[in-house]
Design a binder for these strands. Structure first.
Lengths: 232, 232
DNA sequence: CGCAAAATTGAACCCAATCAATGTTCGTGG
DNA sequence: CCACGAACATTGATTGGGTTCAATTTTGCG
């Protein structure tokens, strides 16, 4: 099901790093690594969880629908697990998931997760850490959403993206702009305009690239806050 | 520090219900139950966590600031714990907390929580459950915020409040309207208008009371969704 | 009572959504 | 490899939901 190299990568995840080999082997027994094309729905909100998912390669978007509307909750890059909370609670998904790029997803049977969790305190500790991190990330997202304007959200997203990409000041958009707009809680049209308006605040760039030409100006526009934009 | 009756109430919390007496006693060793007047700040975002808090009586608001703005994240009624995630991560608070009513708060030393957590699998399991529940609640909040208009958020809040108060169709506002407006992500002025506009959709009431006069009309306006408004 | 804070109401304004049209990108198949 | 088409992105015009500012009324509490 998995090459050794892949197994090693997954092993380095905080969620699995500390557990004993025996437990790890038991955990991924019956797991399988599957390749998916772009724009494939992996999970539908409302369904029941059978597997813990791990993005091994590619990009996964967590999104949600209501009536005819749709919004992005989070975008996951390798290597990350998702829908852990639904498995722990053994309750329906609150979010859907789809690939934004050709991806490889590891699917670990939910029963395994619960079994190891119930028996291995080390793994239990890791699950708690993971959930707490996720919780705090979501708090940051909600603050970002409720306390900032569209311009501020975008400006801070750019700063964060730059940081993640090495801080060179040249950012390659990791996904489509329509996706980014949904993530930031605005329409594609509005993102377009907002981005254009930031050219007066230290931003230039075209197409799939954004360039920070005047970081000071951008920062004074974004006013980043460690309690919203922090790394974790 | 605590009366037996209070101890019993806390013991019934999901977080503590299953653990052994010995562990529970150890957990609340050095804990203290304190009375606070209305509008007292218990926690400031950015500070470091020393205690796990439990609302034993009264009401606590979790809120956050950014620049000159402020918003409500969650409002807690007895009996509920809060800031568990910060303790687990041993990292600064992302939210502040204040009392909205005269309250009694149980404060359990963070060190105790970590100690028992590291030793008692039953408690570890409870912590995971608690975090997963909180996480899912926050997902619902974020969906509510990003996918609904102000009218819809208010209408659904009314339905939920009615449910919690027994479904009689008469709802007593549990806190000030300015607080509700912050919780719903709008200004007090806007809440006023929105509430007035709902009188055309099955709502009447004055002052601190809201009456559902036509539930069908309200529901068709609110369009509740089990994946947003669910109980948990 | 009487004051201070909260709530309501009105008017003007602004940010963002919608509708509509055009330009651009990118993946696909010939 | 190029041409084509569909989806994405941009731009403009308009609408609308929500905020802000301001003034008044009501509530709650000492």
């Amino acid at each position: 099901m998995m090459r050794d190299s892949e197994r090693e990568v997954i092993r380095t995840l905080a969620l699995f790093k500390e557990i004993a080999d025996v437990e790890f082997e038991r955990l991924i027994e019956g797991a399988f690594l599957q390749r998916f094309p772009m724009h494939v729905v992996l999970i539908n909100e409302g369904e029941h969880p059978d597997f813990l998912h791990v993005v091994v390669e590619g990009t996964v978007e967590l999104f949600a629908r209501y009536e005819a509307r749709e919004t992005t909750i989070e975008i996951l890059q390798p290597v990350t697990t998702f829908i852990l909370a639904a498995i722990v609670r053994d309750d329906v998904y609150l979010k859907s998931a789809r690939t934004l790029a050709p991806s490889r997803i590891l699917m670990i049977p939910a029963a395994n997760v619960r079994e190891i969790f119930g028996r291995d305190p080390v793994f239990a500790r890791a699950v708690v850490d993971e959930l707490a991190i996720r919780y705090r990330r979501l708090v940051r997202t909600l603050k970002d959403q409720k306390l900032r304007t569209g311009v501020e959200r975008l400006a801070n997203w750019i700063l964060e993206a730059d940081r993640q990409q090495g801080g060179s000041g040249r950012i390659a958009l990791p996904y489509e702009k329509r996706t980014l707009s949904a993530l930031l809680g605005m329409t594609p049209e509005n993102l377009s305009r907002t981005l254009a308006s930031l050219s007066a605040h230290g931003i230039s760039g075209n197409g799939r690239e954004i360039v920070i030409s005047d970081r000071g100006a951008l920062v004074s526009c974004a006013r980043p806050d460690p309690l919203i934009d922090g790394p974790e």
